[in-house]
């Protein structure tokens, strides 16, 4: 991702109220980096959570870009231990809630049930953030959703199939017609 200084500034400035749930400055040492510290079962669960947020359609969904491993890496590398704990507890809670409500495993469960549960969590996180004090902790599901969107759209499939991407545009046109339904360019 390119990060020229003016772009970074303007990008931040134009998020217009969207809360950026980024990693927080931490003084604590990082935890184990080995296999990002996640089990195969946890990666499979993360894959299914990611693929429920961004499912397969006419272009592949988040599982196809390896979202489980991406989420594990991001959680392990970019969040301090306390945040990692809350995220992992949240991920486990998704599986537990699903089991309690639908009686089976989230991984491999019907898409409608998985989507219903995550939509409920999404409403929860929105309510949580609407009332969040400045120093409050972000809701774990908001972080998972944002990381999934990041990992998906910045992947090769996301940038070149879900969106449009040219490594070398070669020219600049400041005013081009756009019709609803046309894919956005990855910037």
């Amino acid at each position: 991702m390119d990060l020229t200084r003016r772009d970074a500034l303007v990008h931040l400035a134009t998020l217009l109220g969207a809360t950026v749930v980024g990693p927080r400055l931490a003084a604590a040492p990082i935890g184990s980096m080995q296999a990002h510290g996640f089990s195969a079962e946890e990666i499979a669960l993360l894959d299914e959570i990611g693929d429920t947020i961004i499912p397969d359609t006419d272009v592949p969904g988040a599982r196809a870009v390896g979202i489980g491993e991406f989420l594990a890496m991001m959680i392990a590398d970019c969040y301090e231990p306390a945040e990692q704990q809350r995220l992992r507890a949240g991920i486990a809670d998704i599986a537990a809630r699903y089991k309690q409500r639908y009686g089976g495993s989230f991984v491999g469960g019907p898409s409608a049930d998985r989507t219903a549960l995550l939509n409920e969590l999404d409403r929860e996180q929105r309510e949580h953030h609407a009332a969040l004090p400045p120093d409050g902790d972000p809701h774990y599901f908001r972080i998972l959703k944002e990381l999934t969107i990041l990992g998906y759209f910045s992947s090769e499939i996301g940038a070149t199939q879900a969106l449009r991407y040219l490594e070398v545009p070669g020219r600049y046109e400041p005013d081009v017609p756009y019709t609803r339904g046309d894919r956005a360019w990855f910037n």
Partner: peptide, 22 residues
């Protein structure tokens, strides 16, 4: 705005994905 924008009303799933592709 690009795919990192907030579209709260769309929750998760296909509607979210399709919106963020535009």
């Amino acid at each position: 705005l690009g795919w990192a924008r907030e579209v709260a009303e769309l929750g998760v799933g296909e509607p979210l994905k399709e919106e963020l592709r535009e």
